[in-house]
Design a protein around this nucleic acid. Structure first.
Length: 330
DNA sequence: AATGCTTTGACTACAGTGAT
DNA sequence: ATCACTGTAGTCAAAGCATT
């Protein structure tokens, strides 16, 4: 014989005061959802009091809620939480869009692992329980797998974001000198497998690019800095061949017919490029770049298929360097 | 108003945990 | 091992709710 439940008078009176239809149920479930979302990690007892229903009903509400958003009881917190903290903030994302994020993550993993972690946590926020791509399809192959000093990188990133000045001890490769400088970090640049910080240097009273791996010591200052009105790093860097700054120079180079097709594979090798396809099959390119060092390295990769027309100084330098190289080979 | 459906509280059972 | 305690879930009849 099953025992008959005996609903107490008190409970019956309460029911009469407050009807228990679907509407009331929905309101209670939303109340619970709201409390969990606010990280109040409520207990069943508390919820029963708040909703003015029995604990058994709360378990039933939680069961329903669990169909929509996974909810778990956390013994440490002593109450209920979302299984995934960002569960409700989920945005519908296409597989292709996720694949793009994975590609970007591939780039970051190989250049700035600490940023990769941030991207992944962002992805978790965007798409906590949604579909995941089967795997990565686009791959980024840098020429160097970077070993980055994450601590230094993070200090500089934060300083650049917050516009806080930095005091650095820098070991220059060119001069082989160690100097201490106050800098205003404008931004970070990833180039050729290495990270650089572009900054205003108070020692030189001018902007400079510092390789992060050459920074020996770094300390964040309590002073803020301002970036000149209208300054953007992207615009500034456009003038360089890669990243280094110097006086603008016009460089005119003629490439032989042998490599004309290779040259034509890129519509432009630098944003300042002017291209002339000559009747004899050769191609003349004219660039305006800041400094000739970086473009010189690029030109060496085209040996022996080019001829420098301007400037004469670059032509002379390369002649000297190639002469030395020949001597070494012999 | 009659009917079927939904919601509810009480009771119960059971698994897991921690103290003894 | 035993016990107390807690969290969870199945079940039932009562009562309200929705629909016709």
């Amino acid at each position: 014989m099953p025992k008959k439940p005996n609903i107490k008078k008190e409970a019956l009176n309460k029911r009469k005061e407050k009807p228990h239809g679907i509407g009331e149920k929905v309101i209670n479930i939303l109340k619970i959802l709201n409390l969990i979302e606010q990280d109040r990690h409520p207990t069943v007892k508390e919820l029963a009091q708040i909703c003015e229903v029995s604990e058994r009903s709360i378990y039933r509400y939680l069961y329903i809620l669990n169909q929509v958003v996974p909810i778990v009881y956390d013994p440490k917190l002593g109450g209920y939480t979302f299984e995934n903290p960002h569960a409700l903030k989920s945005i519908p994302v296409e597989k292709e869009e996720l694949a793009v994020i994975l590609t970007l993550n591939d780039v970051l993993k190989k250049s700035a692992p600490s940023l990769s972690e941030k991207l992944m946590s962002l992805m978790e926020k965007i798409n906590p329980v949604g579909k995941k791509p089967h795997g990565q399809i686009h791959h980024y192959l840098p020429n160097i797998q970077t070993e980055l000093d994450i601590e230094k990188f993070n200090i500089i990133s934060e300083a650049a974001l917050e516009r806080m000045q930095l005091m650095i001890k820098y070991h220059s490769i060119n001069t082989n000198e160690v100097t201490e400088r106050l800098i205003d970090p404008y931004g970070l640049i990833f180039h050729d497998g290495l990270w650089f910080v572009y900054a205003y240097c108070h020692l030189r009273q001018d902007t400079r690019t510092f390789a992060i791996d050459r920074i020996i010591e770094i300390k964040q200052m309590k002073t803020k800095f301002n970036i000149p009105e209208g300054f953007t790093l992207r615009e500034k860097l456009k003038q360089s061949w890669f990243i280094w700054e110097a006086e603008p120079v016009e460089v005119k180079v003629k490439f032989s017919k042998d490599v004309a097709e290779l040259i034509k594979r890129k519509p432009k090798w630098h944003h300042s490029e002017q291209r002339t396809e000559n009747p004899d099959g050769t191609i003349t390119l004219t660039f305006t770049v800041s400094g000739t060092d970086e473009i010189k390295w690029w030109l060496y990769s085209w040996i022996p298929h080019f001829e420098i027309i301007e400037p004469v100084t670059l032509k002379e330098t390369m002649k000297e360097e190639l002469k030395k190289a020949l001597e070494r080979i012999n």
